[in-house]
């Protein structure tokens, strides 16, 4: 049998893939924009890979990854907090603890989100597609659509709220059936 380190690259990828989305949700919830979250996710992945040989057991990868991500978020916050409106360390730490509890298993949540996305009204759905597929800022979408940035923001905001409500209902209904 190969030693635990004999296939570290494959093992890392497998473990990382398993918790990538949970980790993304976790990091996003601690930072103000998707752009911030992307940067921290990239740093987190690099640190995880660099320090992978320090992981004591694969079963601890997820918890370790969340710990590394939390550290990276706090470090990022220290770098950016002077010129950005980012929550203080105390609230980030509190959110991190609460987020870790719900973030460990996001598969059902993502499945429900896909289901709910299909139920959005066409106009909302189209705008969500445009915003997230093309990764455009609200101002850019407003220019393309000939609308005000505020009206675009409101549609997207309402869509996210509708999706959050739908996910909650879907997961509750699943729970009731089970």
């Amino acid at each position: 049998m190969p030693s635990p380190k004999s296939d570290s690259h494959d093992s890392f990828l497998r473990l990382y893939v398993e918790c990538e989305e949970s980790l993304r949700g976790y990091v996003r919830s601690l930072l103000p924009t998707l752009e911030d979250a992307r940067e921290v996710m990239q740093n987190t992945a690099a640190v995880l890979w660099r320090k992978f040989d320090q992981l004591d057991h694969p079963k601890n990868f997820r918890r370790w990854a969340f710990g590394v991500a939390r550290f990276e978020v706090l470090s990022y916050r220290r770098d950016k907090a002077r010129d950005r409106h980012i929550f203080g360390e105390e609230l980030i730490t509190q959110l991190a603890q609460e987020s870790e509890k719900i973030g460990m298993d996001c598969d059902r949540e993502i499945k429900a989100l896909k289901f709910c996305l299909a139920k959005l009204p066409p106009k909302q759905s189209a705008l969500v597609q445009e915003a997230y597929d093309k990764d455009l800022k609200i101002k850019q979408i407003a220019e393309r659509e000939g609308r005000t940035p505020m009206s675009v923001y409101k549609v997207l905001h309402r869509a996210r709220i509708a999706l959050a409500d739908c996910i909650k209902e879907t997961l509750e209904a699943e729970g009731a059936k089970a």
């Binding site: 998707l34 987020s99 997230y132 597929d133």
Partner: peptide, 17 residues
Amino acid sequence: DFLAYARIDAFLPSIVS
């Protein structure tokens, strides 16, 4: 509610992309 909202924002790019 904040966490739920943020997580939707995190998952949407990979779902719609």
